[in-house]
Design a protein around this nucleic acid. Structure first.
Length: 298
DNA sequence: CTAGGGGTAAAT
DNA sequence: ATTTACCCCTAG
């Protein structure tokens, strides 16, 4: 009875998501009839769409599949539904509204069909989390690698470096990232359910003293983050494709420039820190001397 | 038609 | 053994 199984392609998933964004979750037959998606989804039924959407959301929330839901711990929380706003839930945000825009980039001599001209990359913060989480570097990732990763995945604007540096600093200050020796790692998050404020201090975490370092960065409870990440990945699938197309033409130059730029940025940061310390010392000295001078002069 | 509970079986 | 696509059924 089971049909031979045809896995959903990235295109289909993207179309589904786009459809949900456009028409709202639940308007399956509307999505199906929309000429924008009818090509890609022609093999799917409205019920398929519904089921797929169910699967995606269920797995995206990190509590296993429906089967697990039944068979295992059934918590309360009926899985909040975020009707037609896929980015509704995000980590607690501060005030700033940094958004990285994808350049429209007209690919010359290529009929690359871009789904939406208006798609923009979500918050830098989330992208940074994705970068660090995906790089999976024990001990964290440095700015160079984060930059490289993001440039590979997305199409950052020119002022991106600056934004990244600021955001990194910001996130470190607010405790969402932990910076150790110029490397950033994701700070452990408290799950929004159940236990509220168990004191899982950021820095005070026990240093698992270099015992066979097997689980370096796995400590964080990555349920929400992963959920967001999965969504982002799907949402930016088209962008990744667009970027890939352009990358063929510009990759080399961009990469070289990026690397150099990142290096510069890092050096600048180090310099800045040193400079600040120096400045303070200098200031004190100067002040002291001025006082002396004044005393002498007066 | 949709939501959603429930299930089967193919992939992994 | 879990995930996932697809199916079935029923109540709105």
């Amino acid at each position: 009875m089971g049909a031979p199984k045809q896995k959903w392609t990235a295109e289909e998933e993207a179309a589904l998501k786009a459809g949900v964004v456009k028409h709202g979750a639940g308007k399956w037959r509307t999505i199906l009839k929309d000429p924008e998606f009818s090509n890609v989804l022609s093999l799917r039924s409205n019920v398929d769409l519904k089921d797929k959407w169910r699967n995606m959301n269920v797995t995206a929330h990190g509590y296993g599949s429906r089967h697990r839901c039944r068979l295992a711990v059934r918590r309360n929380q009926p899985v909040l539904k975020h009707d037609d706003n896929p980015m509704a839930l995000s980590m607690v945000v501060q005030s700033d509204e940094e958004i990285v825009d994808a350049k429209p980039l007209a690919v010359s001599g290529r009929t690359l069909q871009i789904v939406g001209p208006k798609r923009s990359i979500p918050r830098l913060e989330i992208i940074i989390m994705e970068a660090i989480s995906n790089l999976k570097e024990p001990g964290g990732s440095n700015k160079t690698n984060i930059t490289t990763y993001i440039e590979e995945q997305y199409l950052p604007p020119p002022n991106f470096k600056r934004q990244l540096s600021e955001k990194l600093k910001n996130l470190t200050a607010s405790g969402k990232l932990i910076k150790v020796k110029r490397k950033y790692r994701i700070a452990p998050r408290l799950t929004s359910e159940g236990r509220s404020s168990s004191l899982l201090l950021l820095e005070g975490r026990p240093r698992h003293s270099s015992r066979t370092d097997k689980d370096d960065i796995k400590i964080l409870s990555r349920s929400q983050i992963d959920a967001e990440l999965a969504k982002i990945r799907n949402m930016t699938a088209q962008e990744a494709a667009a970027f890939a197309a352009r990358a063929v033409a510009e990759a080399e130059a961009a990469m070289a420039e990026a690397e150099e730029a990142a290096k510069e940025a890092e050096a600048a940061e180090a310099d800045a820190e040193a400079a600040q310390a120096f400045a303070e010392a200098a200031m004190l000295t100067l002040k002291g001397r001025n006082s002396s001078n004044m005393m002498v002069n007066a």
